[in-house]
């Protein structure tokens, strides 16, 4: 068990270092000069050179990489070229926002997905087909479009929820419950968008996994020895079906973070994804590299957590006997 987790952690570290290196190289090789963008078309050659020296952009790429990696590991992520703010502060604000959005949506998606998928696996063919059609459609919805449609319905028509940001303009003046209510109202639409898509995917996995397990001989045995259907579903089917579902949850994390990028961009949610999109559009190198690294770390950490979850559910892995 420990050896298994050790290997996975090591793999995760390799992935993160690989991502950071790749990002750094790609960004530096890209055309488009951030210094020219920052200083504008009126800057003289001398001013450009001075600014490049100030950012360390005049040195060879390898030297820049070594310098940057050393500082990165020490927690000094440099300053945003576009805004001048420290990158660490910029992303420090963004990570909790993204985690709140992605984490809540993940939990809700899989809870609802479990319910729908389990219902489908036991339902008659007509109910199953209808629910399948609904989950396929939900899963096919592009986040940015669904977001816009929800904004149209709930912001412009119904005037229920705000469409932009994480807090109202007057949020600083609010206290206690009204402040919390303001937060939740801003949270509603981005969360609903991500969760609706997530439920579609989760329910599809759960249905498939439950069906696979339902066909197994041990389920027939459990039914034959007279256990109640509830007991069979909960103890024998759900527990076994959870293993592929939790594995899938880990594998779907990159897609979830990808989806969050678009949803954050549509709703102006102040998370890592929105920062990344803004930084890419402005060619803000330090922010792009750091935001990519942070996303990779979040994905790898999420994968480790799901590994732990699978081990917790599956005693064969927990006791080190399984060929995981």
């Amino acid at each position: 068990m420990l050896a298994h987790l050790g290997t996975r952690t090591l793999t995760g570290v390799v992935v993160v270092v690989g991502v950071v290196t790749l990002t750094f190289l790609l960004v530096r090789l890209a055309p488009g000069d951030p210094v020219e963008r920052l200083l504008g078309p009126t800057a003289t050659a001398a001013q450009l050179a001075a600014q490049r020296r100030a950012f360390g952009l005049d040195r060879p790429v390898a030297a820049q990489y070594a310098m940057w990696l050393g500082r990165f590991a020490r927690g000094d992520w440099g300053r945003s070229i576009a805004t001048g703010r420290p990158v660490r502060a910029l992303l420090g604000d963004a990570v909790p926002a993204t985690l709140a959005l992605v984490g809540t949506s993940l939990v809700l998606s899989y809870l609802l997905g479990l319910v729908v998928g389990a219902w489908q696996s036991r339902a008659g063919p007509r109910v199953d087909a209808t629910l399948s059609m609904i989950t396929v459609t939900l899963f096919a919805l592009p986040g940015f479009w669904l977001g816009l449609m929800l904004v149209m319905a709930f912001t412009y028509w119904a005037h229920w929820f705000p469409a932009f940001g994480a807090a109202g303009l007057d949020a600083d003046g609010l206290t206690g419950w009204s402040r919390l209510a303001d937060r939740l109202r801003h949270f509603a639409l981005p969360l609903t968008t991500l969760t609706l898509i997530g439920v579609g995917g989760a329910a599809r996995y759960v249905r498939g996994a439950m069906r696979d397990v339902l066909g197994q001989p041990f389920v027939r045995t459990a039914e034959a020895k007279g256990l109640s259907p509830f007991h069979v579903t909960r103890r024998h089917v759900a527990r076994n079906a959870l293993i592929p579902v939790v594995t899938m949850l880990g594998l779907s994390l990159p897609a979830l973070f990808s989806g969050a990028v678009f949803v954050e961009a549509v709703f102006g949610w102040p998370g890592v994804g929105r920062r990344l999109v803004e930084a890419v559009q402005a060619r803000d190198y330090p922010v792009v590299v750091a935001a990519t690294a942070v996303t990779a770390v979040l994905v790898v950490a999420g994968n480790l957590l799901t590994d732990l979850g699978v081990a917790w559910i599956d005693p064969r892995i927990r006791r080190g006997k399984g060929a995981a």
Binding site: L26, L29, P31, A255, V261, R283, V288, T292, T295
Partner: peptide, 20 residues
């Protein structure tokens, strides 16, 4: 393959799309 699979695809897309 596993390495590229572990990356959020949209992040890669944004990076590459922003380069040219």
């Amino acid at each position: 393959t596993d390495f590229v699979l572990a990356l959020p695809r949209v992040v890669l897309l944004l990076l590459l799309a922003a380069m040219a």
